[in-house]
């Protein structure tokens, strides 16, 4: 498990221009407009390990270039603020949900850059695992043992990045 900075940014307030969440894997853009009017954008993960709750500026720069590629009108928006959080990344960029070699100790971690959206399914399958002592069929492939058997979820980078 490696800890990496992941950054996000918001613009100043604007009239409604963007009525839905848009995600483009092709240019790596994830953007929505908050009800108050800010454009909210997720940037990429920094390549290096870090606990400083900030990342490198070129990641923000690249993110804005990608967003403007997709929506040229965003070129008029000014960035209000950026921030970085720490995300825990596994070798296959997929979470670990299941038992551990220690009896009665379970893990639900390694969610990396995509753990919000998965919360309902993660909670449901994790509860099933703890209640029955066996993984639910949905989280069975996400066990810690996959790093020993080699049955990884996906190669790092090929994993779904949709937020």
């Amino acid at each position: 498990m490696q800890s990496h900075p992941l950054q996000a940014l918001v613009s100043e307030l604007h009239e409604p221009v963007h009525p839905t969440v848009v995600m483009s894997n092709h240019v790596h853009v994830y953007v929505s407009q908050a009800h108050k009017g800010e454009l909210v954008m997720g940037a990429g993960v920094d390549s290096y390990n870090g606990y400083g709750q900030r990342g490198s500026f070129h990641v923000i720069e690249r993110q804005m270039a990608a967003a403007i590629e997709l929506f040229p009108v965003f070129a008029r928006a000014h960035v209000l603020r950026t921030w970085g959080g720490i995300v825990d990344v596994t070798p296959d960029a997929s979470p670990i949900i299941g038992r551990t070699p220690v009896e009665n100790l379970y893990v639900n971690c390694g969610w990396g850059t995509g753990g919000f959206k998965a919360t309902p399914a993660a909670g449901w399958t994790f509860a099933h695992t703890i209640a029955t002592g066996e993984p639910h069929p949905l989280n069975a492939p996400f066990a810690l043992e996959r790093f020993t058997t080699g049955a990884l979820i996906d190669e790092h980078g090929a994993a779904a990045v949709a937020h």
Binding site: Q2, P91, T148
Partner: peptide, 21 residues
Amino acid sequence: TDEQWAAYVFYRDNPKGPFAE
């Protein structure tokens, strides 16, 4: 063993502080 391969291929330190990389 498979466990030893897993340790070599996948298991890394993740310190908060000085890190040789």
